[in-house]
Amino acid sequence: MTLRHTTAETFSKVPEVTLIFWILKIAATTLGETAGDAVSMSMNLGYLVGTAIFASLFLVAVIAQIKAKAFHPFIYWTTIIATTTVGTTLADFADRSLGIGYAGGTTLLFALLMASLFVWHRTMGSVSVDTVNTPKAEMFYWVTIMFSQTLGTALGDWTAGTAGLGYTGGAVVFSILLAAVAFAYYRTAISRTILFWAAFILTRPLGAVVGDFLDKPLASGGLALSRYTASAALMVFIVICMVLLPQKAAKSAH
């Protein structure tokens, strides 16, 4: 192993994209939905205040992530959870408080996500997670993730609500789409970077509809669990996974 290879691996601060990565991503996005709703709805703080709270947590987490000298699973997944909670309240604020509806919110957030990826690619030459090994690339990475999480929330709500599929139907749709992405990964020559971001985006609406399924009333097709109970259970599950299934840092591109 060359010195250059070792150094690149040492300073990579994102995890390998493995099965446990996707399990934790779905759990984190589901937690983001239940925790975001707990603050904005159960605590009656509203979407704007909830967004301000989680945006502050997101900023602190991103700073900690960027300042870290190596990959730390707890810091990384705390930042992911922060992006998904702020994504939940921000999407709800755009969809409902701004009055543009799920379709308008989804369209706006999709445009912002595409703009983020475009600027990132024009600036750094790649949007592959293998190149996230500098503070500048990390900033693009986390801004893009925040937009993808927010888009996923709006898309999940749109599918379950406006499209009339319900929470179970929405979960089935996004599970099928994720299976199609997995098939494309193993059976086609489609860019791995494109497939990664497609899967990353699709896991968020899956988490959104699963989160809504857990805490929405029985009359609305949910399980009527307490948002606090669901959030606590998901947090315990995430911590157990991190402890029992250690992750390695991704190998950086040279």
Rank of each mutant, 00 (worst) to 15 (best):
V143G: 11
R204C: 11
T18M: 01
A233R: 01
T188G: 08
T7S: 08
A232I: 14
M146E: 10
A160L: 07
L31N: 02
Q149I: 00
T123S: 15
F196N: 03
I66W: 03
A28L: 05
L151G: 01
I80G: 07
G207C: 10
P15Q: 05
T10R: 12
T106S: 15
G101L: 11
T203I: 12
G104Y: 02
T83A: 12
M124G: 00
F183E: 04
M41E: 12
T168M: 13
L178P: 01
L90P: 00
T162A: 14
A233H: 01
I63W: 10
Q65S: 09
S175F: 06
G170D: 02
A249H: 02
F200T: 01
L234D: 05
I190N: 01
A91L: 09
G169P: 03
L155F: 14
G166Y: 09
I238C: 11
A249W: 02
T89H: 03
G36L: 12
T34D: 06
G222A: 12
H254V: 09
I201V: 15
K69I: 10
F110W: 07
P246T: 07
V181N: 08
T107M: 13
A182L: 12
W142L: 11
M242N: 03
M114Q: 06
M114I: 08
S252M: 12
A171G: 07
T51K: 04
A179D: 03
T18S: 14
G104I: 03
T162P: 00
T153I: 07
L214V: 07
I81E: 02
G211E: 04
A232T: 12
A70M: 07
L19Y: 04
Y228N: 02
A182K: 08
S231K: 14
W158K: 11
V49L: 13
T83F: 10
A180L: 13
S175W: 02
A171C: 11
H254K: 10
V209I: 09
A154I: 04
T131K: 04
S42P: 01
R122Q: 14
R122S: 11
L234C: 08
Y167F: 15
F93N: 00
D215E: 06
L19A: 13
L24Q: 04
K136D: 08
A64T: 11
P205K: 05
M43V: 00
T78I: 10
T229H: 06
T51F: 15
Q149P: 00
F21R: 06
M43F: 14
L218Q: 05
M139Q: 09
S97R: 09
A198R: 01
I190W: 08
T229V: 15
G166K: 10
A137N: 15
G105N: 15
L112C: 15
P246I: 05
T83W: 08
T85K: 02
F11S: 07
L177F: 09
D95H: 08
H5D: 08
A224T: 05
L112F: 15
A137I: 10
R187M: 07
K13V: 12
V173E: 01
M242Q: 11
A70G: 03
T6S: 14
L214C: 06
P73G: 15
T193G: 06
E9L: 13
A171D: 04
G207P: 02
D92V: 06
T153R: 05
I201A: 15
Y185I: 13
G50K: 10
E138K: 02
T144V: 08
A233N: 01
T78A: 12
Y167G: 08
V60M: 10
L45P: 03
G156K: 04
T10G: 05
A224E: 11
L98G: 07
F71E: 04
